[in-house]
Amino acid sequence: MLGDIINPYHLQIISFILINIILGISIYITLSSGQLSLGNAGFMGIGAYTSALLTINFDLPIFLGIILGAVVAGVFGILIGIPALRLSGVYLAIATLGFGEVIRVIFVNWESITQGSIGLSGIPHLGRELFKTFKLTGFDPDMLGLKNNQFIYLLVVLILLLVNILLVWFFIRQNKSRVGRAFAAIKMDEKAAESMGINITYYKVLSFTQGAILAGFAGALYAHVMAYISPADFAYHRAIDILIFSIFGGSELIWGAIFGATFMTILPEALRFISDYRYMIYGVILIAMMAFRPQGIIDVSLLKWFKKKLKLKRGGSLGIGTKKYN
């Protein structure tokens, strides 16, 4: 039954995909107002360490820990954002990359609290803690025909999925709102946007902070899914990985970040059968991508073409006019 279909291996991959999607969106949001920030690995680390330390040392519930992790990352986002956003383009990228490294070095050196490069182990695990509460209420996964670990990972995936749906929904709404339009205007031309009466400092800090909050949120989730974090997890490799999610998938649309994160997470796993060569293929795909489709896989025109296709098909088979679907 259900127990035969659900494989913890697949659930594990899906949960990483879902976390990476949040990271992908976090950089998409800053990119959508024309800022290239590479500090998201640092914000992710802040979120992860905040939540992990709070739940370990003060027995805070995980949900509260994760929210506080995101909030603290957001506060740092505002503090860093206000001075850093005087810079733009490559200069901003380098400044934020530097910020990320500073954060990592602080984790390494603040040994009394973060245990340095040994890392924090024994972080309460999202699924296992929930499982305990379920057990207390007398629920047994056997009732669904599931083993304990299947149930634990199913819970994790379901929670992450819910969070993802809410986030995507929120940001699609935002894109169509005054805020999203302001972001787009700033991205196109800062001066023109300012002359139209858009408070660019406010909106730039807003998008930067939203990115920081999301990255911190994803970091906190990561900590509670891995149950172990170390400063090396939040080095600049991570920042680059996150950037690739959005650039590969297409940075114009939120779907690009989602697709990029999904594809880039599945790819190394799917290429397992060629073992030693898999990262070579990964590299080749990235190069080919940048050469043939520098705007990313999914862009506005592809989405339009896809919608039109869909419309034509449905319109044709059901005999309904195309207007309804606009």
Partner: peptide, 30 residues
């Protein structure tokens, strides 16, 4: 770490594997 964990899940979910050797790094083992 994340890949070590995924692949461990893959190996563990196959019932005829009786033991694991590795992973290489202590961080992965954690």
């Amino acid at each position: 770490q994340d890949q070590a964990l995924t692949v461990a899940q893959k190996l563990m979910s196959s019932d005829d594997i009786v033991a694991l050797l590795g992973p290489t790094l202590s961080t992965e083992m954690n």
